[in-house]
Every structure is written in structure tokens, then in C-alpha cells.
């Protein structure tokens, strides 16, 4: 059978992913994460009497800590599986990806295991985060100069 013909046969028997449902879930959970984050910022800036900028850092640390804790306790993967991009795109996803890799490779040693593999998934986020930050800074500088 020709490869293109076989691809058609495969497509015929491949189920469609529930894109719309997944998007709705991601939208709702992602929105909820936004509300929680804003609540944390308000909480910290009010009770610790710090600026919004400083409170934002506290909020990020809190979310990272909780994600790592929940990953270590072994149930965050189930939440991620359900919420999909609702939890993967925010900082929670980054922390979870890093923590899960650290847990997985702990037994292979501190340096050869954790050190070498911790950023296995999240490394790409750092690299392309820096690349896009640089790109947009250049665009902003150029646009600002005009």
C-alpha cells in the first residue's frame, strides 16, 4: 500500500481529540490560577505592607513551592493531566516539570542525576524564554527609538 494511501487509512481510524473541551478546561483552570495569583498578590501586599512588585515575587514563590510540594506528594500529575495547559502554561507547569524530572533522576546521583537532568523538560522553557525576551526587547528598543 502506498504511504499516502495508508496515511488516509490511519486517519480514518484515528479518533479526534476533544480540542474544544480541552480548551474550555484550560481556559477555566488557567483563569482560576490567575484569580488565585491575584489574590496572593493582594494578600501579601496588604498583610506584609510591601509593594505590588515585591508581592508578585512572593506570589510566584508560593505557587512554585506549592507545585513542587504537590508534585512530590504524587498527585499533581493527575491535576495536570486533567487541567492540561491550564496548569502547564503558568509558572506551576514550569515548577512541576522541573520537580518531576528531579524526582525521577534523584537515584542516579546528585550531579549525574539531578544536576544533569533536572531541566530536561523545562530547559527548553528557559532557553526560549530568554530568546523571546531578547527579541521583544530589541523590538521595543527599535519601536521606542522611532
Amino acid at each position: 500500500m502506498e504511504k499516502t494511501k495508508y496515511k488516509d487509512l490511519v486517519n480514518k481510524h484515528t479518533p479526534k481529540e476533544d480540542v474544544f473541551y480541552n480548551a474550555i478546561i484550560a481556559f477555566l483552570i488557567g483563569g482560576l490560577m490567575g484569580i488565585i495569583a491575584q489574590g496572593l498578590i493582594d494578600f501579601y501586599s496588604y498583610y506584609l505592607s510591601i509593594s505590588t512588585k515585591e508581592a508578585t515575587v512572593c506570589m510566584l514563590v508560593t505557587l512554585i513551592f506549592l507545585s513542587c510540594l504537590f508534585t512530590s506528594l504524587g498527585f499533581f500529575d493527575k491535576l495536570v493531566n486533567f487541567a492540561k495547559c491550564g496548569l502547564i502554561v503558568p509558572i506551576t507547569g514550569f515548577a512541576h516539570a522541573t520537580m518531576s524530572a528531579a524526582l525521577e533522576y534523584r537515584k542516579e546521583g546528585m550531579i549525574t542525576g539531578i544536576g544533569a537532568n533536572m531541566l530536561k523538560i523545562s530547559g527548553a522553557v528557559i532557553i526560549f524564554g530568554v530568546v523571546s525576551a531578547w527579541t521583544f526587547s530589541v523590538i521595543r528598543a527599535i519601536v521606542g527609538a522611532i
Binding site: 484515528t14 479518533p15 481529540e17 480541552n22 508534585t71 512530590s72 504524587g74 499533581f76 500529575d77 493527575k78 495536570v80 493531566n81 492540561k84 502547564i88 512541576h96 516539570a97 520537580m99 518531576s100 524530572a101 524526582l103 525521577e104 533522576y105 530536561k120 523538560i121
Partner: peptide
């Protein structure tokens, strides 16, 4: 999972197939 896909605790979403 560890060798071919993602760390076990990552549990990323998977397709139906």
C-alpha cells in the same frame, strides 16, 4: 515512561491513540 517519554510524575496529557 522515563526512558521514552517524560518523568513519571510529570504525567503530561496524552492523546487517545
Amino acid at each position: 515512561e522515563k526512558q521514552f517519554r517524560y518523568p513519571v510524575e510529570y504525567g503530561g496529557p496524552k492523546r487517545k491513540t
